[in-house]
């Protein structure tokens, strides 16, 4: 059963062309995007920078409204993990307050706050002493664990992971990806997994949609895409993977 669905999403941004040229240009961030994400799967979204991946994620989460098209989200328990853990954690808040924010905002989950925070800290393998520290006292990988803890503590059913490992060292990338998989199995979470790194997509995803200029050009099972790409753009992307793996 699909937990998230969207049909014919269109989102244009108007941009100033500069001081001298009059009038505004339009960026077609999303130009008729439809997709369905099944419960419990990891749905990959891949494409070059600026093709509209982040915008689509934000529309599915309801913090940007599309110009037209409809979004069907069958759960209220949604969360996001962002690319830049330096921007995604409030620098003026202690880890304790960062992780508990979602619980405080969610009605009826203020009981046993500390117990729940400590439990989730265990899940992401951060020491208990982290609670009274500020984000700048952690490394990039640790910060991403804090962001994951914040997302998981509210017991979400759907998480948008927007390039969650792009800013991390390769060794740390694998740790974080494994952690995300582990969490998915433990809590039965559906992921929309955004990345421009095909190796990461191959490791994580059950199905993959390939995006180009605000459109989905190919949308199939992960195995099929990696063994027999159909669209020329997908072939181009695949041929650009470094052959180390």
């Amino acid at each position: 059963m699909a937990i998230v669905e969207c049909r014919d999403i269109i989102k244009y941004f108007s941009v100033q062309r500069g001081y001298l040229k009059k009038g505004a240009g339009v960026v077609k961030a999303l130009d008729g995007v439809s997709l369905e994400i099944e419960e419990g799967e990891t749905f990959g979204l891949v494409g070059e920078s600026g093709c509209g991946k982040t915008t689509l994620g934000k529309i599915l989460l309801g913090i940007i409204s599309p110009d037209s098209g409809e979004v069907l989200l069958k759960t209220k328990e949604k969360q996001a993990i962002f690319q830049d853990p330096y921007s995604s954690l409030d620098p003026k808040m202690k880890v304790r307050d960062i992780i508990s924010e979602g619980l405080i905002l969610k009605k009826g989950s203020k009981t046993r706050l500390l117990e729940r925070i400590e439990k989730v800290l265990d899940v992401v393998r951060l020491p208990k002493g982290s609670l009274n520290k500020y984000p700048h006292q952690f490394s990039g990988g640790e910060r991403q664990r804090i962001a994951i803890a914040r997302a998981v503590v509210t017991e979400p059913e759907f998480i948008v992971c927007d390039e969650p490992v792009s800013n991390l060292d390769v060794t740390i990338q694998l740790q974080i990806l494994k952690l995300l998989k582990e969490i998915q199995e433990k809590f039965r979470i559906t992921y929309l997994f955004i990345s421009h790194d095909l190796r990461v997509i191959k490791f994580m995803c059950d199905r993959v949609a390939v995006m180009k200029d605000g459109k989905i050009v190919e949308n199939r099972g992960s195995k099929e895409i990696f063994t027999g790409p159909v669209h020329p753009y997908t072939k181009l992307l695949l041929s650009s993977i470094p052959r180390i793996f």
Partner: peptide
Amino acid sequence: DFISASRIM
């Protein structure tokens, strides 16, 4: 992003 995160919650 921490503002987006807060709005999502």
